[in-house]
Structures are given as C-alpha cells and as structure tokens.
Amino acid sequence: MTSATIQLPAHEVHRQALKSAESAARMIQLAFRRDNWRGQSGNWAGMGIGSSIDFQDHRQYIPGDDPRYINWQAYARTGNYSMKLYREEVSPQVDLAFDASASMFVTPEKALRALELLYFAAHSTFQINAQLKAFQLIGSQVKQITTDALRSGQIDFSSTEATPLTPHFDRVPWRQQSLRVIISDLLFPSAPDAVVNVLSSGRTRCIVFAPWTEQEANPDWLGNVELIDCERDARQTHNLSAHELESYRQRYRSHFAAWSDACRRRSLDFARVKSEGSLTQALTREALGSQAVEVIGK
C-alpha cells in the first residue's frame, strides 16, 4: 500500500472479514477435489505410490525397493520378486498470492471482500491441513504472510514503496505442483496472457479470485469530475457524458473478458467475486460455477 489517499482496512475490518470467511469456509472450500496431489504425506490421495491402504498396482522388484512391500505370496507361487504398490496419501500444497495494491482497498466494500477472500482461501487450506504458503504482493515486494497472521486476522499491508503497474506475480516463490490461489482485482493495464503464463507454469492448477464492485462496473460519474488514480495519485479532469461513460463500461467488460479468455485457454479457474452481498452468496453465485470452489461434503 503506497497511496496516502487510501485508508488501509482497520483491525475491525480484518475481524469482520475473518469471521465472514470462517463462516463461508464451513460450507464451501477451494476446489481441492478436482486434482491428484503430490507432496508430503497427508490426508489426500496423491499422484504417486505411497503407504496408504488403497492398492494400486504390481511391478517387478528393483533393488533398493522397500522389502516391506514385496509380495511374498506371489514369490511363493512364482519364485520372482514382485512388489505391491499402494496409493500415496499426500497433504496438498497451496500457494496463496494476495494482491495488496491500493485498488483492492479503494472502497470499504471491496476491501472487506478482498480480505474475506484471503481469509477464506487460508481457512479452506487450514481445514484440510494443506501446506499453505501465503504471500502479499505489495509494492515491488513479495512478502510472506504468516499462518498465525492469517489465523488471527492481523496482517500488515503497510508499505512505503510505489505500487507498480502490474503486480510482480513472477517474484512469488511458487512451488511445483502446488495449488496456486490468486486474489487480485486484476485492475492493471498489462496483457492478461503474460500474467496467466506466469501463474500456470510448473504443472500446477491455479484459481484466480477477482473481487469487483458495482461502482467500478457501472459508475455514475456524469458531468465534471476529477478522477484520481488510487495507486499513483494521477489526476484527470473529465466532463463525462453518458456516451463516454458507456464507452468506459464497454472497456471494463472487455478487460475482464480478456482475462476470462486467457484463464480459460490456460485452464485457470477464474472467478469474479462481487463485493456487494455476503461472501457465501457471492462465492456460490460466481465461483461455484467456474469450479473455483466446491461445496464441502459433496
């Protein structure tokens, strides 16, 4: 956060967002079940061979194999060593990146929804004991968010650095085969494909949550207005007509249509989450259909 014109969310807002996220996370979670996971042992079936009770396959013994998994009964019948292979149980790895630019907090509604999404993603991860690494992209820095901070709702977004035009997603230490969760309003002029390429690299799945507000989608800025960019203090004075406003709305829709297309091409789950209304309603309405989230228990 660099702009002096934007008020960072107060502690009370964090608490409210945390409570709302916990409530939503009891019914909805990130779409963990859509994928086979690799990684450390855990509660989720992995892609590799493990020590679970689920039989998977046989193969020839190779020196060095763990003798505990030699199929002695088959050896008795055939005289050859063969191995019994069981499915691996892993703990999913989740890399969470939160765009902490000023635009995420431009209105109280949007700030609350952005924090709700952050805490929702974190608590979804906590509920399945996944390995979570969370980062905030603030200025040109990528700062890790501690698990304690995510659990307690005490995250510091303050920064003295200028906000870059595009968040530095490429500086996030993404882990291979992790579930990448991006929370960003995507309001920067960079081409979506360049960013999507970064997010989709490394044989991984990625979910993008983009909070938005009705005010930015359908503004009522008719007449003489001084438009102040919330991140760079740039100012433009316009005398906006209805025609010009309609042109803006068209550009806004095109901007997110481009993001949606880019994500679909690279198999990223893309969900725009409206800031108005409750988090549960917003996720159910806008993220469930795009399979960015799933209902717990189904």
């Binding site: 014109t5 207005v225 960019d229 919330c230 010009e244 550009r251 901007h255």
Partner: peptide, 13 residues
C-alpha cells in the same frame, strides 16, 4: 469537478 478516487483510470476513454 467532483473528486473521485477510482481504481480504473486506465480504462477511461
């Protein structure tokens, strides 16, 4: 002019 703090200045025509 009414001052308006916005996040979508780059989308303005």
């Amino acid at each position: 002019a009414r001052p308006l703090l916005i996040s979508t200045l780059f989308l303005m025509p």
